[in-house]
Design a protein around this nucleic acid. Structure first.
Ligand code: FES
Ligand code: FES
Lengths: 148, 148
DNA sequence: TTAAATAGGACTAGAATAGTCCAGAATTAT
DNA sequence: ATAATTCTGGACTATTCTAGTCCTATTTAA
């Protein structure tokens, strides 16, 4: 289904909240507001700090805050923080030693696809996500999916 | 990591082979050529038939063949066949009843992202995959060649 | 009728994800 | 100082998803 992991999804929710909040907030507060369990929130925040998307302050009155402006935090960065490098195929990452299948000599054009997708994700920022919604009218849902 | 499932990867390998072959081939033959185990090949082919990417002929001398020209089979279609609808977030699919997190009111702009990615995958066909390779960004130049 | 294929679906094992928990370190408040 | 608060790092478990296998039925050719 080419989906984002749940954790990444949560991350965008959390970050959206933080982008609106603008002030430093504690993990517990985020958990309360979003309805995501504290340990899970905590885990996500830790990943985001490691990826330098957030900065943290320890101790009483501590908490988390965005490391940069929402305009400068791309969706690609967030996905990267939670799920590692964005790439569709193995060979796109390692670029060597991929022996998925003996008869495979695809290689080339996949990286073009990967690049395209990466660009798409890189071009959307947190700021875009919290904007009222540009709404591209209709979302296309394949008929076949309705019958599963 | 936003990756394709292994099965989908296999599918592209198999389809690439079939696109070159052009004639009807049996599952066993494909298994032999690609090095993928027969039951697995079989499973994938069945999915592709259901998605109408392939047509099958039963009985002795039966086998599989592309249902359309390689130019008319998009990567999006293939992914769809193996993994279901392409969408990054839950709400993009059901468009209702997504209660991932209480505080979430993202919605809108994600579908823009989804749409972009879907377009990217829709615009690449089987024919593109088997083309010698347009080779974008990184091109590997053997060090040895630099000294000639 | 027999052999060669695909069709469909059940099933198992393994891997990845989601989620929890705890002991430790840093900071502030008392 | 001491206590309370809050993040840190990693281990751990449970659950879900994926990959892969296998079996039985059906179709077709010879
Ligand atoms: S999938 Fe990596 S070489 Fe084909
Ligand atoms: S992720 Fe679905 S509503 Fe927010």
């Amino acid at each position: 289904m080419l989906r984002l992991s749940k954790l990444t999804d949560y991350a965008t929710v959390i970050l959206s909240f933080m982008a609106r909040e603008k002030t430093q907030v504690a993990a517990m507060e985020i958990a309360a507001v979003t309805g995501i369990a504290l340990p899970t929130v905590s885990k996500i925040l830790k990943s985001l700090v490691n990826a330098e998307v957030l900065v943290s302050t320890r101790g009483a009155k501590g908490g988390y805050a965005l490391a940069r402006m929402p305009e400068e935090i791309s969706v690609a960065t967030v996905i990267n923080a939670l799920e590692g490098p964005i790439a569709l195929t193995e060979c796109s990452i390692s670029h060597q030693g991929c022996e998925q299948a003996l008869g495979c000599d695809i290689g080339g054009n996949w990286s073009l696809i990967n690049q395209t997708i990466h660009n798409a994700l890189e071009s959307v920022t947190l700021a875009d996500l919290i904007r009222p919604a540009v709404l591209p009218n209709e979302v296309f849902i394949p008929v076949s999916s309705l019958y599963r």
